[in-house]
């Protein structure tokens, strides 16, 4: 296989807990991203799923150094990314955000939004900007007329297309898509997902595709990483993860996804779980885990390879398929 485009090693990001008085730090921190490592190959999509608070968005932004990492290493195309050379990363890696209403500058016309990155990086000469803006718009399925519009004059789907065009302007090799379709209606969501797939095929883009929606992630990704409380608990090929998870959390996530079908399937009630606690020792999923044993309270499971290409941070990863599939309801029992 070729060399990875992006290598992330033991990346952590802590946020200080601010006290109310004078905005001074009171010592405490929240570890939003906790010792995360993964590789992303050129032209590949790595899906990143997790629930709110899992740290997936923070991870996406820290990888782009929009947040300064607390510790760990980011290697992009063989070069370690540091605070000093992060500027180079800005030409190679871009981001598309969730909210199509907040992610575009409200008082700029589309033309200027797209021209700015071209001018900053001197990608084309000023005389060619107009032409390049038009071609970017065409690439994302908009027309030249949209260049004159302000963001508020566009629909949600059109805005998201502009966001994508802005990301593509610098001709990046990596795009972080942070819940890029979550705010869109399903019909528009399908349009944008297909557009992103086409752009990927045409330009050899790699995506770090962050979403809480397993269906969307499954559709877009070759591999999926599942995050829970700041850590990756399982990573592997998309098809294998969704058909036979090796971590109980992945299994719970999959069971909770509503499915279109003739039967009701979401019937397995996880005991109404307590809020997950961030723990220093042991497995942080153990308070919700139906398979938890004594060892889970004392030893933190590492993310290790249990089968070719399949890594899971569970002491009993190989038991997950039997143990949890067995407790799934017989189809139709509650339908």
């Amino acid at each position: 296989m070729t060399a990875p485009l992006l290598e992330v090693r033991h990346l952590s990001k802590e946020f200080p807990l601010r006290g109310l008085r004078f905005g001074r730090h009171r010592g405490g921190t929240v570890r939003a991203v906790d010792d995360v490592s993964f590789d992303l190959y050129p032209g590949e999509t790595l899906g990143l799923v997790g629930e709110s608070g899992s740290g997936k968005s923070t991870l996406g932004r820290t990888v782009l150094r929009l947040f300064e990492p607390t510790s760990g290493e980011i290697v992009f195309d063989g070069e370690p990314v540091t605070a000093d050379n992060a500027a180079g990363l800005r030409r190679r890696a871009q981001i598309v955000f969730q909210d199509p209403y907040a992610s575009l500058p409200p008082r700029m016309r589309v033309r200027r939004i797209l021209a700015d990155p071209l001018l900053i990086h001197e990608i084309v000469s000023p005389s060619q900007v107009e032409e390049r803006v038009a071609s970017l718009l065409r690439d994302v399925g908009l027309s030249e007329e949209h260049a004159r519009a302000f963001p508020h004059q566009l629909s949600g789907g059109q805005r998201q297309r502009v966001s994508i065009a802005r990301a593509l302007a610098v001709e990046p090799s990596l795009v972080v898509a942070d819940e890029a379709v979550s705010a869109l209606d399903v019909s528009v969501q399908a349009q944008i997902l297909n557009l992103m797939k086409d752009l990927q095929a045409g330009r050899g883009l790699a995506y770090l595709f962050i979403s809480h929606d397993l269906g969307v992630v499954r559709y877009m990704s070759r591999r999926i990483a599942v995050m829970f409380l700041g850590r990756i608990v399982e990573v592997g090929p998309a098809a294998e993860i969704t058909s036979g998870p090796l971590h109980p959390y992945t299994s719970t996530l999959l069971a909770a996804v509503p499915k279109v079908g003739p039967q009701r399937t979401v019937t397995r009630l996880d005991s109404d779980h307590p809020a997950p606690a961030r723990v220093d020792i042991g497995c942080s999923y153990r308070t919700r885990c139906p398979m938890a044993q004594e060892v889970c309270e004392t030893d933190r499971p590492e993310l290790v390879e249990w089968a070719p290409g399949r890594r899971s941070a569970c002491h009993f990863a190989l038991d997950v398929p039997q143990r949890l599939q067995a407790s799934l309801p017989v189809p139709g029992s509650a339908g």
């Binding site: 349009q191 269906g215 559709y219």
Partner: peptide, 20 residues
């Protein structure tokens, strides 16, 4: 069209149907 444009975990489509 609505049914076909939802990406499904259990039955992933090669390509989603799009409502133009």
């Amino acid at each position: 069209a609505l049914l076909e444009s939802v990406p499904r975990v259990e039955d992933p489509a090669e390509r989603l149907q799009v409502i133009p």
